[in-house]
């Protein structure tokens, strides 16, 4: 069903309440996500959180048990081939033909995206340039280095000029040069208007990409928003080094409850208010030799959500509905 809702601010990829089970075990359990043109969404979560299954459902490789998926107004579950024409996919597993050259590999996917020969050749050359593959265009994929293979895989996703990019751990095992090239290419495509879903376990990449975040756990998105927004309420940390010659101070109970040892003579204190906690520390006679204040980052968010120690509004809503 076409809805023609691609105006300013409209989403180009919307999935709602996707459910998919394998033998009674839910891989997707109410997975919902929306992505706008030009947006890069970092989809994070532990293995088994549903990230890859989400990609497989959207690309039509796996049929969802329930739910909706919409790509640029096309119902991707009812009309998967039309929806796939708008997608560029880089799966987690390398999918290259070892016996063909990079040029031939990219030419195949350009052709399948509907580009005629001349246009396909131009797209291949441009994409290779973008991903630093120009020098190996006529080399067989089977003899490429690991990083070159990763770039060739991503290039196959980009070469057709898709409106939505699904990149499933595109930099897994990649060297820094490959990672930098891939991130630059993703940023460029997003700047040109493509919507990007970028699955990764390398959280600093999402900072580089200035991505908004979607945190998946147990088959659903449990947190969604900007990085600052999602980490705002997480505790940061004060790391204090103490003089070993002086006796360890007695901390007030509320502070002690949030304190763990740090090295042989130090303390680490989970804090939402570093100045107040530092003041409390000094007030009880602590004389630090060094203090390091860490703001909460993506690692903290990831750890908190993956461990289930953080309850989100989405969790509460789903739980209430289930109840």
């Amino acid at each position: 069903m076409r809805r023609g809702h691609e105006g300013r601010g409209a989403t180009v990829l919307t999935v709602r309440n996707l459910r998919k089970s394998y033998g009674g075990k839910a891989a997707l359990d109410g997975f919902s996500l929306a992505v706008r043109p030009g947006e890069i969404v970092g989809l994070i979560g532990h293995n088994g959180a549903g990230k890859t299954t989400f990609v497989e459902v959207v690309t039509g490789l796996v049929r969802a048990d329930r739910g909706q998926a919409d790509i640029c107004g096309i119902d991707a579950l009812a009309r998967p081939r039309e929806a796939r024409a708008l997608l560029g996919v880089a799966p987690q597993e390398l999918a290259l033909y070892p016996g063909v050259t990079v040029r031939e590999q990219l030419g195949l996917f350009a052709g399948l995206a509907g580009l005629r020969r001349a246009a396909a050749a131009r797209a291949v050359a441009a994409t290779a340039e973008e991903l630093m593959l120009t020098d190996v265009l006529d080399r067989r994929c089977g003899i490429l280095s690991g990083g070159q293979r990763r770039r060739a895989q991503a290039a196959a996703a980009l070469v057709g000029g898709p409106r939505v990019l699904l990149l499933d751990e595109p930099t897994a095992g990649a060297d820094p040069q490959t990672r930098a090239a891939l991130l630059a290419a993703v940023r460029a495509r997003a700047a040109a208007g493509a919507a990007v879903v970028y699955t990764t376990h390398y959280l600093p990449e999402l900072v580089d990409l200035d991505a908004t975040l979607a945190v998946a756990r147990a088959g659903r998105v449990v947190a969604r928003g900007g990085r600052a927004e999602l980490t705002a309420d997480l505790p940061g940390e004060i790391r204090v080094s103490l003089d070993p010659a002086r006796p360890r101070p007695d901390l007030p109970a509320p502070l002690a409850a949030r304190t763990r040892p740090f090295g042989e003579h130090g303390l680490r204190i989970a804090t939402r208010n570093p100045p107040a906690d530092l003041a409390a520390l000094l007030a009880c006679g602590c004389a630090p030799t060094a203090v390091d204040v860490r703001r909460p980052d993506l690692d903290d968010l990831y750890a908190a959500l993956a461990a289930g120690s953080a309850t989100t509004a989405l969790d509460t809503e789903e739980g209430g509905r289930a109840a």
Binding site: G9, T11, T14, V15, R16, N17, G30, S32, L33, A34, V35, R36, P37, G38, E39, V41, T212, A214, R220, V221, V222, R224, G225, G226, L314, E317
Partner: peptide
Amino acid sequence: DGVHDAPDA
């Protein structure tokens, strides 16, 4: 249901 209008679209 978690479908979010991203900032900076």
